[in-house]
Amino acid sequence: MTRPLIGVTTSNRSGWRIFPLVALNIWLAGGRAQRWGAGRPSDVGGIDGLVIGGGDDISPDLYGGELVASARLDPARDALERRLVTEAQAQGKPVLGICRGAQMINVALGGTLDQDAYATHEDSRRYRTILPRKTVRVLSHTRLLALTGPEEMKVNALHSQAVRELGSGLRVAARDTGGMIQAIERTRDPFALGVQWHPEHLFYARRQRALFRALVAAAAAGLRSGNQVEAAGKATA
């Protein structure tokens, strides 16, 4: 069977080192990856699934927020990724959002962000490392729990922003110990899952690989007009 093709957005600055990691995870999950970015060709109609990768902060212009002094922005990438998420939803293509990507899914679907999330959630521990040090609690009765199991997870954390108000059709799937949102998901097709951490760096952990397996399974289901959420749910850890 042909491997589903997954478009992967990256930063033009750091994509050269991040894309190979994401592509490896997608390959291990049974798919194949194609790198996209601002200034590169990108056609949602030519792929089976989408990964919105990590990177710079999202401009508050997209959701009516106010700019904080510490923000580092990439307006061209913002415009590209919001279009891609919107088109993927319209065309019924599954989406996995990683860190910034989770935030972009939320913004593209009408949600807002907390630009200084650690000031809002003072009990949330801040870590600036790709090592798995942050504790995340997966919420009950979520698709994410079906993928990873109910046990707490140790993940990495490089973000300063987080989801505030949820976009249309989304629900919270995980929080950290301080209550900050760490994962969001759609409750119905097309499949969409956003995680605030970087699972591509944790490819040695079966629960993190399950996230990519879910995306690829959803993409394969979409190719045969099957139920994406149901197919993704069977890609358990």
Rank of each mutant, 00 (worst) to 15 (best):
L5F: 11
I6W: 01
G7F: 06
G7D: 12
T9R: 07
T10Q: 12
N12Q: 13
S14W: 12
G15A: 09
F19V: 00
F19I: 01
P20Q: 08
L21Q: 14
V22Y: 03
A23K: 06
A23R: 09
N25W: 00
I26G: 00
G31E: 03
G31D: 05
R32I: 01
Q34S: 14
R35E: 13
R35F: 07
A38M: 04
S42D: 06
S42P: 02
D43E: 13
G46T: 13
G46I: 01
D48K: 02
L50H: 07
V51A: 08
V51D: 13
I52H: 11
G53L: 06
G53Y: 02
G54I: 01
D56N: 13
D56A: 14
S59V: 04
P60T: 12
P60Y: 14
Y63K: 07
Y63S: 11
G64P: 03
G64L: 10
S70Q: 13
S70G: 08
D74C: 11
P75G: 10
R77T: 05
R77M: 07
D78K: 06
D78H: 05
L80S: 03
L80W: 02
R83I: 04
R83C: 13
R83E: 15
L84E: 08
T86D: 10
Q89S: 01
Q91A: 10
G92R: 04
K93F: 09
P94S: 11
P94G: 08
V95P: 05
V95H: 13
V107C: 09
G111K: 07
G111Q: 11
G111N: 09
G111Y: 05
T112G: 11
L113I: 00
Q115W: 06
D116Y: 01
Y118P: 02
A119H: 12
I130K: 12
P132Y: 03
R133F: 05
K134Y: 00
K134S: 03
T135F: 06
V136K: 05
R137D: 08
R137C: 12
V138T: 11
V138N: 03
T142D: 10
L144S: 03
L145T: 10
L145W: 03
A146M: 05
A146Q: 12
L147G: 02
T148F: 03
P150C: 08
N156R: 03
L158P: 01
Q161I: 01
A162P: 00
E165C: 14
G169Q: 08
R171M: 14
R171A: 14
V172F: 10
V172I: 15
A173Q: 06
G179M: 06
M180K: 04
I181W: 08
I181Y: 10
I181E: 10
Q182S: 15
A183R: 08
I184E: 14
E185N: 04
R188F: 08
R188I: 08
V195F: 06
W197T: 02
H201W: 11
R209N: 02
R209P: 00
V216E: 02
A219V: 00
A221T: 01
L223H: 10
R224L: 11
R224V: 11
S225H: 15
E230M: 11
A232K: 06
A232N: 08
A232Q: 12
A232F: 03
K234G: 13
K234V: 09
K234W: 05
T236E: 15
T236H: 15
A237D: 10
